[in-house]
Nucleic acid binder design. Sequence first.
DNA 1: AGGCACACTTAGTAAACGAACC
DNA 2: GGTTCGTTTACTAAGTGTGCCT
Length: 727
Amino acid sequence: MFFPLLYILYIPADTFLGHCLIVSISASLLKNVTLFFFSDSYKHKDKYKEKEHKHKDHKKDKEREKSKHGNSDYRDSSDKKHKEKEKIKHKDGSTDKYKDKHKRKEEKSLDGKIKKEKENGFASPPYDIKSKKTKNKKGEVTDGKKKAKKEPEEKWKWWEEERYTDGVKWKFLEHKGPVFAPPYDPLPSNVKFYYDGKPMKLSPEAEEVATFFAKMLDHEYTTKDIFRKNFFKDWRKEMTSEEKAIITDLKKCNFSDMSEYFKAQSEARKAMTKEDKQVIKKKKKLQWSYEENERILQEYGFCIMDNHRERIANFRIEPPGLFRGRGDHPKMGMLKRRIRPQDIIINCSKDSKHPEPPPGTKWKEVRHDNKVTWLVSWTENIQGSIKYIMLNPSSRIKGEKDWQKYETARRLKKCVDRIRNQYREDWKSKEMRIRQRAVALYFIDKLALRAGNEKEEGETADTVGCCSVRVEHIKLYPESDGQEYVVEFDFLGKDSIRYYNKVPVEKRVFKNLQLFMENKEPDDDLFDRLNTSILNKHLQELMDGLTAKVFRTYNASITLQQQLKQLTNSEDNVPAKILSYNRANRAVAILCNHQRAPPKTFEKSMQNLQTKIDAKRDQLSDAKRELKSAKADAKMRKDEKSKKAVESKKKAVQRIEEQLMKLEVQATDREENKQIALGTSKLNYLDPRISVAWCKKFGIPIEKIYNKTQREKFAWAIDMADEDFEF
DNA sequence: AGGCACACTTAGTAAACGAACC
DNA sequence: GGTTCGTTTACTAAGTGTGCCT
């Protein structure tokens, strides 16, 4: 019911994930066999074969069991690689020899124990401060396409260098500060606001806030009571006393004139950019918005961190507007105020050129804290939380952390059996708190639930995770659909995405749950003796660096690896293999409950595709007929020419068959993906080295799996993983 | 233990882009 | 050349988890 689906099925990821995920791939991948997702009740009885995954200890892994960073995996090979390169070219004048020596040392070192002296600044390819250019500036940023070939050799391989320890994140940091939202541009006088049917000129402050509402008029947000109430309250704060006296009822406000104006404006802008594009093509001269945008990007979109020019993720300050919370958010509609220079804290190194605040203004503070990664921060007024400007995922600082995350998950792989045995023992504990902890951990492991921190009531939407699940969120069925001990989950998780699952559990778990629910009200916590901090403290004792979220990473990645192993058929052609990949990815997305709203044009686009398929079918039968007659013809005439004709017709048939299959695969893939989002798991949960290894093993170009941005983010993995990589 | 501040990762959606198509 | 449609990128909300203080 959650996912109406086609095809596919499910296999056990492992004994634990078994019920959740399973794909049984029919050999007849393309035969329109319709299978189903039972996402709401992963109930295909355990008809899957119990496959346990072998935890073969990899030689490679062994060595670093202890290393917290554990990132020396590929150290050997990359070292070798690196050395070779050194011989060939050493254009960047970096401290490679130095590096190599130290690297070896690091291999044995425990993270954080040995202070390494990375002389930042000597890494390859360094940023030339004087000329303000990086070698690859153009290639990276402006027109990547044409110079794509040049790029690779220019890219900085931070993963071949030392890491900082002791919490130091950088030694040198210089940037230009944030880009502020453009100032409010008042409406032309012909665009009117009406109150109670009468035109009314608003003060600029009140008018600006009114435009925020007008711009959202088409959105259903503006029909919601809470949204309207919050908006109106905050709007009135911006009004002059005269305005306040007049405007007392939101219902009497008419924003439609304003709304129309903005619609027209955005239309005009669209048309405009198109024209611009043409102009650009013709004159080879960039214009206005493009050029301006590019200029701002070049100036503000990068920083220099330790002698490398790195891309910033979000260098524009969030513009003012109305807060759009997700789900049933008590604060939706509140005014998100404009951020000014005096709200901004700048973080950079002492010896850098500090960013200048706009003329006539001052920063709130300039600090030099190299134990954090952010460049700019401010406090937002809705929740009072801090917002940051940080680096792009392709940056060294983000990449290292990402890599480290997967290494932690791989360490969990080595001790997950022990931990599972442990929590199963704990189900029997005399102590309630321990049993609760053990059951919660079981859910986190088996169902990939999030930890579930407590939230302040009334401040945010009512959503829960594992530790904060309430009695009302689960139902117990001693028997259901022929299975014993079934638990039904139904709650709103992160982003108010519904989690619905009906799953059989072990008897002990079931009995414990019954006990936990005894004498409780629906809105009581299921695990009243547990919270995330207790749980994480316990996990920390089980394994260094272990927290609840590591289980999600681990289970996601191990599932991908297993699914790929099972689904990939080396005989398949490239599109079919990619379908297999997407299915493996999909299994993970379902496990992690990554959903999306079905695209608005979904039905139509499916239809279009079907039309194409039909057309292709017709084309195929035509081609076959032609082939037949050509054959007959050749049989009669027996001359060279007619033989050739047969050959070419044969080829045509083949080609069309291939095209048809490709289309069918596409259709299947799309249908299965209707409301499942693959991106989140791909970007955040799946060790990219698994995908890279798979691509290498089956000769799939990496571009088919990762787009440009993703390749940038995962450059480290693409560079270091070979086809034998094992998670 | 509990509360809070802070830093950083993970998340879905909307806007922008660009390739395929007419 | 203009339009359509799928993909990519931008945006920013909503989580997790740590460390400090009481």
